[in-house]
Design a binder for these strands. Structure first.
Length: 195
DNA sequence: AATGATAACAACCGCCAACGT
DNA sequence: AACGTTGGCGGTTGTTATCAT
């Protein structure tokens, strides 16, 4: 292939590379292309589909968001428990952990851990007066002493708002340049689009 | 009602291993 | 065997939404 080691950070001069949030149109293009051609070499795919994105960006978008089998939001207590259990075994091996949670992505689990669980662990540590010792321990590997986590996570305020997408109406909402939509909408659109 | 602080999420970046030529 | 490319992973950052004052 005609490749310079671009590796995600598009610093090619002549080809402009888009960054930042994906638009609805880009999503549709990617979905359509993969529906018709399947996944392939991501860099080539991005070009062939006409997306001004790096292959890496396309891959990430597809795996974490657009895939039909991806489940987002509403992590169940069972899943929380499993995440904590696996994390205590494997540490930050997010992709490995994600393999045991069908439909969940490593990125989502990682975010979930960092925003919801790690915070509570630190709080619990602070209460038990050990914060100085185990500082950022979770990022290294084992959680040797997890203080009865489920009780801590039982009903923190943040759980009330853990699913932003549900704040949006059932149908897609388009707001100025940004678009928010349900994946159901996207998939039904692309099916209609059929190409 | 306005402002600031915090939480949650999406996406990017850099590194590394695997694979192909 | 060496080099280049790609894919995957984990860490980090930027943006937006929500809550509290």
């Amino acid at each position: 292939m005609d490749k310079k080691p671009e590796d995600g950070n598009g610093k090619s001069q002549d080809v402009e590379v888009r960054k930042g949030p994906w638009t609805m149109e880009e999503d549709l293009i990617l979905i359509n292309y993969i529906a018709n051609h399947g996944e392939g070499v991501w860099n080539s795919l991005a070009k062939a589909a006409g997306l001004k994105r790096t292959g890496k960006s396309c891959r990430l978008r597809w795996l974490n968001y657009l895939r039909p089998d991806v489940r987002r939001g509403n992590i169940t207590p069972e899943e929380q428990l499993l995440i904590m259990e696996l994390h205590s075994k494997w540490g930050n091996r997010w992709s490995k952990i994600a393999k045991h949670l069908p439909g969940r992505t490593d990125n989502e689990i990682k975010n979930f851990w960092r925003t919801r669980i790690q915070k509570h662990i630190k709080q619990a540590e602070a209460f038990s007066g050990q914060s100085s010792e185990m500082n950022d321990q979770a990022s290294t590997s084992q959680m040797s002493s997890m203080p009865e986590p489920m009780e801590t996570y039982d009903s923190p305020p943040s759980f009330q708002t853990n699913n932003n997408m549900e704040a949006f109406p059932a149908n897609l909402v388009v707001e100025s340049n940004e678009a928010y939509w349900n994946m159901d909408d996207l998939w039904s659109m692309q099916l209609l689009n059929g190409d």
